[in-house]
Design a protein around this nucleic acid. Structure first.
Lengths: 337, 337
DNA sequence: TTGTACGCGTTATCAA
DNA sequence: TTGATAACGCGTACAA
């Protein structure tokens, strides 16, 4: 195969200069109607496509946005990726995908790679570390949008997430309403915003009803690994075990359910369970799980829209915090006490 | 923030020429030890990172590989993406992600985007259409590796997949061994290689045991939508309904199980079920599902390794067909008839 | 072992 | 309305 056509080839064939071709390509500047068709014909004939690299080098920025997610094994992030890709395409944006596996070291490497400016913007779920590099991205005028989680210190960064506090409060109230007072919560790590906010919501609901908080029932678990199972096991071994449980750590839902099943804990008879978040497999589990469903398409839509707007500098500099409500789905894993 | 450093800034600061810097950067050619440290120091001090676009423009190819998957909503593809990203990183390759949503039109657009040569290689699950564009990629010397599925006409393209025929035969024999003779199969569309090959394996197993094939029990279903449920419902409404079922269409497993549950079909008492493929949620379903587990890490490893080798022209031109065996997991969704 | 100068493909500036 | 030409940042012959 011979080499692909360049803008010069097109110009030659159309009998015009490269500038004219560039102008019809980008609609930037005047072109005589007659010449325009000649150029278009030449482009067609030579199957010319502008090289992204050359364009990027010339203008300094790219139409590629980096998507840095924790882990595609988690259906929540997988579905988020799916929607982000779709939203990006509809705006002619490309997605460069990386994962952190919740490992700050890997996250750091990924950010370094992105820092070479090959991306025009970033969407990511930060591990909570690498604050300097996230800052540097912003400092380099690369728009950053945090999705799902954020980093408290970085209050200049745009954030798109669900109403974590409200959602956790709703889930907790649902259990309180059904007569439960010993309610456990497995959250994400307390150095993540989702972790702390969901615990806040839980505490708020308890406070409303005058139920005392028991430290032994409020337990964070790492996103990776099977630690969530141990934590729940410990709760259940308490002298006064919980009768209700909120699994607010999306990544640990599966692990916790497996442990419960192995330990022959009957749901909801022995234990009422609410989980974050809902995924298509949730309804196949017996009993179908009461869940907080995150509006993933909204999260994706706003994230992409936000970086896109920033990339075109269509937005005032003030950081945006988009919080979308989550839906509460009552199914069969929760019952009256 | 002032502009990022270029290779010239580094050269100036280190008191050498750009070529020296380039050489220490790429290890291409000799550099005096003393100057090397000066350069390294300058790079450090200026936080210099070579611009990917400039490098790509200069050398003509990129370290980015396009990953074109059907749909990240399907846990199989999601986990595949997760592993591909990991394998790519360990080789300093970037992943540009796109999805087809099983739509040939979207696939075509995605391929056009990739055709502008911004990618150095491609890994994808083709829909079966857009043959010309896949061909053109190869013709442009962009290495292409099909994973999971392939396109029969494109026999010059590398393929990495599981042993589809064997796997389906094993699944079918498992049911035959347990006394089932009325065995249904839901496959993928018959214009996909996974669809036809798995049906072939099914037929082969039946033939071995002298069981006649019944057309009404061999039904393809599209990957998207809920059509698989209808097809199974039709099978079960037959005068002589099947007592065993192979769900060979990964994307329809969930849909089929939901329908079975709603129709109050008892598994395995009324119907023994084997599914492609195993995902972490499968074991939480009651009863735990007998499944064909695809070695996703192997699929990812070989795919990335293959494109990478081709990108460095480390391989003889003959197309490679890597077929990895799948694991058969007997759980509780299959029983003697 | 080092440095100069040019090419990669596109956009942008500016004079015609 | 058009066309030369200078960036953009890096790799690399080729000359020194």
């Amino acid at each position: 195969m011979r080499k692909a056509a360049t803008i010069r080839d097109v110009a030659a064939r159309a009998g015009v200069s490269v500038s004219v071709v560039s102008r019809v390509l980008n609609g930037t500047g005047p072109v005589a109607p007659a010449k325009r068709v000649q150029v278009l014909d030449a482009i067609e004939a030579l199957a010319f496509r502008p090289r992204a690299a050359a364009r990027q080098l010339s203008q300094g920025h790219s139409d590629t946005i980096g998507l840095l997610l924790a882990d595609l094994t988690n259906p929540f992030f997988a579905r988020l990726a799916d929607r982000v890709v779709a939203e990006a395409r509809s705006r002619d944006l490309q997605i460069l995908l990386m994962t952190t596996q919740e490992d700050p070291h890997l996250e750091g490497q990924a950010l370094d790679t992105l820092l070479d400016r090959s991306v025009g913007g970033m969407i990511g779920t930060p591990t909570g570390h690498n604050v300097e590099r996230w800052e540097k991205l912003s400092a380099l005028d690369i728009p950053v949008v945090f999705v799902d989680r954020s980093i408290a210190e970085l209050d200049q960064v745009d954030v798109v997430s669900i109403e974590n506090i409200d959602s956790a409060a709703t889930a907790t109230r649902h259990l309180l309403d059904r007569g439960h007072t010993r309610i456990g919560i497995i959250s994400g790590p307390l150095d993540t915003t989702t972790g702390v906010e969901r615990v806040q919501g839980y505490e708020q609901a308890l406070r409303e009803r005058g139920v005392a908080r028991d430290d032994r029932l409020v337990r964070p678990a790492p996103f990776r690994g099977d630690h969530g199972a141990d934590v729940v096991a410990q709760m259940l071994a308490l002298p006064e075990p919980p009768t209700g449980l909120v699994v607010a750590n999306t990544a640990q839902v599966r692990v916790v359910l497996r442990m419960l099943s192995q330990a022959r804990v009957e749901i909801p008879d022995d234990l009422s369970v609410v989980v974050f978040d809902d995924n298509p497999w949730t309804e196949l589990i017996r009993p179908p799980l009461t869940a907080v469903r995150q509006p993933i398409d909204m999260l994706a839509l706003h994230s992409v829209e936000l970086v896109h707007a920033r990339m075109r500098q269509k937005l005032p500099p003030a950081p945006r915090r988009v919080r979308v409500p989550a839906e509460f789905l009552e199914r069969a894993s929760t019952a009256r006490r």
